[in-house]
C-alpha cells in the first residue's frame, strides 16, 4: 500500500479525535456521559494492566474458537449435503436461507432457557451465528464448480468419491474460503450478542458490566477493541487466506 494512503488514514483519525476532544471541552454533554479520548485510553490501559480485559478477551476467544470450529464443521456438512443432493436442496435449501436471515441475538433467550446462563449457551449462539452462512457458502461453492472440470475428470476415468475429493473439493476452495471468512464475521457478531446477555466471562459481559457501573470510558474502550479485533482478524487472517487461494486459482491477478 502506498504511504500516502496511510497518511490520509492517520490524519483522519487525528481529526476525529480532535473533534471528540472539542465536543468534550465544550461541556455540552455531562462528563459522565461523554468522557474525553484520554480517559478512554486510560481505561483501556488500566483494564489491560489489572488483567480484567485480558481475561475477558481470552474467554471470548475461547468461545469464538470452539463455536467457529463447530460452525465450520456443521456448515460444511450441511452445505455439502445440499450442494450434492438435489433432493436435500429442494427440501431444505429455502429454510436454510430463512434461518440465515435470523439475527443471532434472537437465539440468545432461547439458548439461555435451553442451556442456562453459562458459557455453553454463548457457544451455542456462536455456532448458530456461523453455521448457516457457512452452509450457504459451501452449497454455492459446490454448485459453482465449473461443469467442464467434472466432464474433463470423468473422461479421465474419475468418478464417485475420488472425483469429489480430487476435483470438486479443490475446485470449490475459493468459495469455501469466502464462507469461512463470513462465518468468522457472523460468529464474532453472535459472540458479542451472546456475551452481552451472559454472566461472563467475556468481552461482551465486560461491556455490560461497564454499563451497569456507568463507566462510559470502558464502554467506548471495549467497543473499540471489538471493532479493532473484528477488522484486524479479517484483514490479517481471513482476507489474506481468501486472496491467496483466489490468486493461486487464477481468479485474481
Amino acid at each position: 500500500m502506498k504511504p500516502s494512503i496511510w497518511v490520509k488514514r492517520i490524519v483522519f483519525i487525528i481529526v476525529l479525535l480532535a473533534i471528540w476532544q472539542g465536543v468534550y471541552m465544550s461541556g455540552y454533554f455531562p462528563a459522565i456521559q461523554f468522557p474525553p479520548p484520554t480517559k478512554v485510553f486510560q481505561a483501556l490501559i488500566d483494564g489491560f494492566a489489572d488483567g480484567t480485559l485480558v481475561g475477558a478477551l481470552l474467554a471470548s476467544f475461547k468461545h469464538l474458537l470452539i463455536g467457529l470450529a463447530l460452525a465450520i464443521t456443521l456448515g460444511t456438512l450441511i452445505g455439502v449435503l445440499l450442494g450434492k443432493s438435489r433432493q436435500a436442496d429442494e427440501t431444505a435449501g429455502m429454510y436454510l436461507i430463512a434461518m440465515q436471515s435470523i439475527p443471532s441475538i434472537v437465539w440468545v433467550p432461547l439458548a439461555i432457557m435451553l442451556i442456562g446462563l453459562n458459557e455453553t449457551a454463548v457457544i451455542f449462539v456462536v455456532v448458530l451465528g456461523g453455521t448457516f452462512v457457512m452452509a450457504l457458502n459451501v452449497r454455492t461453492a459446490i454448485h459453482s464448480v465449473p461443469p467442464e472440470f467434472i466432464k474433463a475428470a470423468r473422461t479421465m476415468g474419475s468418478k464417485g468419491l475420488p472425483l469429489f475429493f480430487k476435483v470438486e473439493v479443490p475446485a470449490s476452495l475459493p468459495y469455501y474460503m469466502s464462507g469461512i471468512r463470513l462465518a468468522w464475521a457472523f460468529s464474532w457478531r453472535a459472540l458479542m450478542a451472546g456475551e452481552l446477555l451472559s454472566n461472563g466471562p467475556g468481552l461482551g459481559y465486560s461491556l455490560r458490566f461497564a454499563m451497569d457501573f456507568a463507566q462510559m470510558e470502558l464502554v467506548i474502550g471495549i467497543i473499540i477493541i471489538v471493532g479493532v479485533i473484528g477488522s484486524v482478524v479479517d484483514q490479517l487472517v481471513f482476507s489474506k487466506l481468501e486472496k491467496k487461494v483466489m490468486r493461486r486459482w487464477g481468479l485474481l491477478k
Binding site: 465449473p146 467442464e148 472440470f149 466432464k151 474433463a152 475428470a153 470423468r154 473422461t155 479421465m156 476415468g157 468418478k159 480430487k166 476435483v167 479443490p170 475446485a171 476452495l173 493461486r248 486459482w249 487464477g250 481468479l251
Partner: peptide
C-alpha cells in the same frame, strides 16, 4: 460410460487451476 480408452479435449482447456502443468498432465494416470 467414460473411460481412459477415450481421451477428450474440449473447447475450454478445463485444466485444474490448483495443479501445476505437470500435475495436470499426470492427473489421469492411475
Amino acid at each position: 460410460q467414460p473411460g481412459t480408452d477415450r481421451g477428450m479435449v474440449f473447447q475450454q482447456p478445463a485444466l485444474f487451476p490448483w495443479l501445476t502443468v505437470k500435475d495436470n498432465v499426470t492427473f489421469p494416470l492411475k
